[in-house]
Nucleic acid binder design. Sequence first.
RNA 1: GCCCCCAUCGUCUAGUGGACUAGGAUACUGGCCUCUCACGCCAGAGACACGGGUUCGAAUCCCGUUGGGGGCGCCA
Length: 468
Amino acid sequence: MAEIVTRFPPSPTGHLHLGGARTALFNWLYAKHHKGKFVLRLEDTDRERSKEEYVVSILEALKWLGLDWDEGPYFQSQRFELYQQYAQRLFEEGKAYYCECPKEVLEEKKKKMLENGQKPRYDQTCRNKNLGPGEGRALRIKAPEFGEIVFEDLLRGKIVFPAEEVDDFVILRSDGTPTYQFAVVIDDITMGITHVIRGDDHISNTPKQLVIYKALGVEPPKFAHIPMVLGPDGAKLSKRHGAKSILEYKEAGFLPNALINYLARLGWGFGDQEYFSVKELIEKFDIKDVNLSPARFDPDKLLAVNAYWIKNSDNRFLLDHLKPFLSNKYNLDQFSEEYLLEAIETVKTRGKTLVELAEMMDFYLTEEVFYDVNGANKFFTPQIVPVLEKVCEDLKTLTLENKVLEDYFRNLAETYGFKLKDIAQAIRIALTGKTVSPGLFEIIRVLGREKTIYRIKKALAYIFENSF
RNA sequence: GCCCCCAUCGUCUAGUGGACUAGGAUACUGGCCUCUCACGCCAGAGACACGGGUUCGAAUCCCGUUGGGGGCGCCA
């Protein structure tokens, strides 16, 4: 079997968003699964709207997601000559013709047809004028006037369009640049694309492209039209929700593999399995298992998947991804990697994003903690003072192990007639400033003797200042 | 308006004619665990859009209706 080649052709007129990323993912997975090639191509034939900054951000987003490409990135804007050659050929073979209809006239006619309840289509005014190339003339393809245009979609089976649905559409604009329909086909042919996996908003473009393949006498690739991603409200993705740039999810503290996992499960399933590593996805993904109905983007579920991967990832992996969120606020060089890894271990079940983890780690990385006022008022009581003093003393020699610490604090509570909770909360605030934190014993263990005693003494000083 | 696609809990999905009292995940509710918050565990509520067929039998096949989505550019 010949090598499978897929492609992802974003248009640099905006950032890479969830929908695009999922299309890229499915193409990438399909290629990887079949040990084929994945080609990246930037469709920038619209020179007005295409922006360099979007090229940069799209590439960055793909890299961050780990969707590496085997070929490219190609830029359509650098391939104009190629398109012109093919167009020239079609013209010479009589399969395309030049059209001199002014835009205004075309629009007027279109409006009329729409008013009459007809589908707007070009009325072939110039089809038989035998015009040559010239100023202001666009090149149109001769589309079949009767019959059906049929193709076999990998997911949906046979899809049939009446030939009347396709008019003599423009393949070369009057300025000589190719239109999308034309450039896509020429690129897919010359890049050896075997499988086109794209959003189902392209279904109605397919018959047009098939007309070009036919005119060129080239066997078209296989098509698989995947359902689109909708917003949580069932409407088209908009800036409000999922149309945000993928890089914004990076900023928001999502793990790339979590986003991949979530995106893969949007429209695709493998029995009851919910969580997949990228490696597993490559093994198990088959385009044929993709659903046909559009899927809504659910931020809650994304969060849950992210939480799962945070919880189940190696601490070193987490540290790597956490660093950008920490280094802007703390000087990480002063801590050993060992210390950071242990700190991460204590917070990883407690946050859904890396941003949350970074916030939770604050007390590990900062010199002084600031007390939550309500918590301090409630738990920093004069009665607790002797307990804290005793703890400072005993901590000098206690073995810092969870079991030892737990036994110690339970005994302590009993001796002083406190509930463990009251002691724990007071020390928790002393060490973290907050009433909510990882388990007390693990905090003490990670923080170490010196810092723990220092912070409890600070707390004692605070109590004296505020209560006597 | 015309053409095309789609239809299982709120959401993502399993399900391909009998194993369905329709399974899992998420979100929600209650409980357990417990030094706080999480995690984890247990339980609860929650869906085959509707109407016709086909069949001994339909979530599964066919038709229609309704609903949703997409397209109809010298945008991609």
